[in-house]
Design a binder for these strands. Sequence first.
DNA 1: GTCTATACTTGGATAGAC
DNA 2: GTCTATCCAAGTATAGAC
Lengths: 194, 194
Amino acid sequence: MATAETRDALVAGAMATLREKGHAHASAREIAGRAGCNQALIFYHFGSVERLLLAALDRVAELRRERYQALVDESRNLKELVAAARTVFEEDLELGHTAVLVEMIAAAQANAALRPEVAERLRPWRGFAADALRGTPAARLGPPEELAHGVVAMYLGLELLAVLDDDPAPAAALFERADSLATLLDLFSLRRRS
Amino acid sequence: MATAETRDALVAGAMATLREKGHAHASAREIAGRAGCNQALIFYHFGSVERLLLAALDRVAELRRERYQALVDESRNLKELVAAARTVFEEDLELGHTAVLVEMIAAAQANAALRPEVAERLRPWRGFAADALRGTPAARLGPPEELAHGVVAMYLGLELLAVLDDDPAPAAALFERADSLATLLDLFSLRRRS
DNA sequence: GTCTATACTTGGATAGAC
DNA sequence: GTCTATCCAAGTATAGAC
């Protein structure tokens, strides 16, 4: 098989493994099994299991960015931005995209070597959130860069709890509250502008 | 040695190991080494490594609850409650108490058997947060139980990011914003009451 | 580029001596 | 109640054939 195809299959296998078995059980044998090839190929193509897992993290970021951008671009006010965030959250939860992210972040907590690698791959998301907040009434609450950190933290925390409790309802309730707040802020913003 | 002492040493060793090496490297041999006893004793006293790790999680909860309660009881308004939350967050980050929590939650993400065990041990914290919010102007934003879920999620998310970036500054900045907001809500609450 | 085979390591768990 | 010794499983990584 061509190099590119094998690499793609291994990355896809790594994503699936992280999602379904977690970082602890993301072994070379397990991943290769899903990719339908031999375990030794991981070391040939990526050098180590960890580097393959980081490649999987890159792939998830690629996959989601386009979708996120489209949803954010459609939003004309804070209320719609909250709705977009909710859609993204629920899609990621269902598709398990964030599970890949969460597993890698969790693994990095206790692995100093992995930490900067994962941190670097997380940075764009904070920038993305900051851009989305810029120019909205939410900027009234503080600098977008600061708020973006909170948005990312909340996103990760809600994901952790939703999986843990196997219950997306509490997160959904919070999105409802955020929606009400956003409506208020939008109105207040209009009044001050007119 | 007496049973109680050995068990305590093992639990302390498990806490230290989770904090410094993470769940992935919390092996029986590693923990027993820190406890200054033999690896086989873990199976004698706790049955399995996992059950010992859950005992460590229980221990952390015990240790922190008293401190949390004292700080919350001292708070007379929302602004002081935010300050208490910040103190707790920074203490836990420095002492590594939350690291134990985060490691277990992260491990539970991909381990269905562990999930309900960890979820059950997390529930009291949500109730605790809800009690703290009850009767404060924050209740204006929504039912305390719903908001408490958000507080716990934010707490976990901020912890994940603070460790990942090895930088507590962004979380500190958010606590400053929360302080301003709390001051506003406190004032608004006074006006409506008088 | 992909496979088989294997060396080496770590870790969970148990048996049995003390 | 604690230890030593050991079995067995799983995993990383490499060598070398094809």
